[in-house]
Design a protein around this nucleic acid. Structure first.
Lengths: 335, 335
DNA sequence: CTGAAAGCGCTTACAG
DNA sequence: CTGAAAGCGCTTACAG
């Protein structure tokens, strides 16, 4: 059985209170007692029961992470960054996945509340259109930080990539390479990040007096096949885009593979720029030009912000809504 | 503030005991009371405090997962599989990373013990050579299941890929394609999975009366550069392998890219077979032949086993040490 | 510097 | 069918 504070007290013939204080390095306890207690604790292999301590102090020392899925380079790296900060603060994390499902998201939040996490880093699912469950969070005074995907109407910190300027830069790069007909394969239309990247695309076209061709913009869903979409976009030789900016590296890779199958040369016939600057970029041929994304840094920043809220520390207004800038890493697919 | 069982009791003018029982669907409580209570609970947005319940019942409803790193397709997918089973059982997971560091692993285990998880799914770090910390687990009656990486000398369930036959099949495939000089780029030498894949390689060579050339076998570490190693392996035209079986798809991809840089044709000059059958296989060119790995199924199996131990259910001997068989998915890199 | 006592929010054996 | 009481393992205000 697990040894408790009482067992140590018994063995040392002192009170549990003193043991507790000694273990927590309370200033009123003599050095001698502290030494005695910690020696005995080690000897008996005592492990603090966080559950009990948490119940008493109303501090669970845990924070929740809710992401659409853990199997995605972006979110996995973000969690990596978050955990670093969380561990440094002596906390632990409970990680949940919504699987991009609205009802699942609600369940997971409920479960995090039941675990009494002190805060949540949250990336809403691509199906979430209502936000009552987030109001529940607020009702429970459980602070949260939006990560990468933000719901409107909440006064809570946000950490995002600067998707707008990312999209802008990607398209500007293609324009400067002399491309004339630039298409965009977007992400799920409902997501803010999809919209922002698309808006960056539009803004770049506008800035350089390009006309917008609506046939050249398609929003995609992760679960549907993209091959047909890509084929359709490029099948008409007379009205074929000569460049493509995609929502993700995955989409860019799919596009390159499909374009090659269709007998088109990348970048000669079609330049391609992805988003994420993932490890795929240097594997696909030609190597993929891509917009950088900084999941680890973003995760660290989100965790930092969450701890500030938890500890009631002041967050200066300019820190409340962080946007991580991107740059274009140019590789062969757009050279 | 969070609403408690007491608040509901007060509002309904009944005792907390009754509220608790009603909420837990105790048979002795009248349907009427149950309805009343659950309506009120919903109205007041009551959320069970798992922490408190756990303290009382000595059941935390949580299990721990400790993996080397979360950012790895294999482990991320495994966690996916584990979480599915865990959620189905009404539990939640605490996920920790050792970052392949022995001392970190010890710390994480200590922390999981303090969180009073009811069991742990464990993949030891590649630096772990001593196992005292696992004996601590046993001393605390905290059951655990080894996942993918197994420490010797413990009477606990294990879930592994059948790395030996995987390696065997990969090399057999290369032999049947008529390859004569088959090299092996292995993983960290200390890991059982590296050894097993290597032994499969050896066994295949032996079975087909091939001689073993020790210069053709190299064990690698994840953090060191592999380019030089690959270059050295293939630089001598007179004594150059005509096939390569690698520990992972990542290593295979690196090898293919490097071989191409060296002016060698894959598969004409060198056939390559990877391990993992990851999404990289269809991105690299030529597409990579690879041995399948089933992380999701393995994760599910590990979680199932852990729950059996937690619930003291009998595990038939043939279920104690699961090995997931692999097959070779043939693609262009070895055609 | 140390101890006795109360209490965190639950559950459950005991009593009725 | 329902309630009063004890207790899970801690922490901490209060008292000395």
């Amino acid at each position: 059985m697990a040894v408790t504070i009482k067992d140590i007290a018994l063995a040392l013939e002192i009170s549990p209170s003193t043991v507790s204080r000694a273990l927590n390095d309370h200033p009123n306890i003599s050095e001698e007692t502290k030494k005695l207690v910690s020696a005995k604790a080690k000897e008996m292999k005592y492990q603090t029961n966080f559950i009990a301590a948490g119940l008493r102090t109303k501090k669970s020392n845990s924070i929740g992470i809710l992401v659409p899925h853990i199997t995605s380079n972006f979110f996995a790296s973000a969690i990596d960054g978050i955990q670093k900060i969380v561990t440094d603060n002596g906390y632990f994390t409970i990680i949940c996945q919504s699987n991009e499902d609205y009802h699942n998201e609600i369940d997971q939040i409920r479960s995090l509340l039941s675990c009494k996490v002190e805060g949540i880093i949250l990336s809403i699912s691509s199906e979430t259109k209502e936000f009552e469950h987030l109001e529940t969070l607020q009702a429970y005074d459980t602070p949260f930080v939006f990560f990468d995907r933000v719901a409107p109407g909440f006064e809570t910190p946000t950490v995002e990539a600067n998707d707008f300027t990312g999209g802008f830069q990607a398209v500007e790069h293609l324009i400067k390479r002399g491309r004339k007909k630039i298409a965009h394969l977007g992400g799920p239309g409902i997501l803010g990040i999809s919209k922002s990247r698309y808006e960056g695309y539009l803004e770049a076209l506008k800035t350089y007096d390009y006309e917008v061709n609506e046939d050249f913009v398609i929003f995609t869903n992760p679960d549907e096949g993209h091959e047909e979409i890509i084929e359709k976009l490029f099948e008409d030789p007379k009205n074929r885009p000569d460049a493509l900016f995609t929502f993700s590296d995955e989409l860019a890779v799919e596009s390159i593979l499909k374009l090659k199958k269709m007998g088109l040369n990348v970048p000669r016939d079609v330049s391609v720029v992805g988003f994420g600057n993932s490890n795929l970029c240097e594997i696909v041929e030609p190597n993929l030009t891509s917009v950088t994304h900084e999941p680890v840094e973003m995760g660290e920043a989100a965790a930092d912000l969450l701890f500030k809220v938890i500890q009631n520390r002041h967050i200066p207004p300019h820190m409340m809504h962080l946007k991580f800038d991107s740059r274009v890493v140019i590789r062969d697919s757009s050279r």
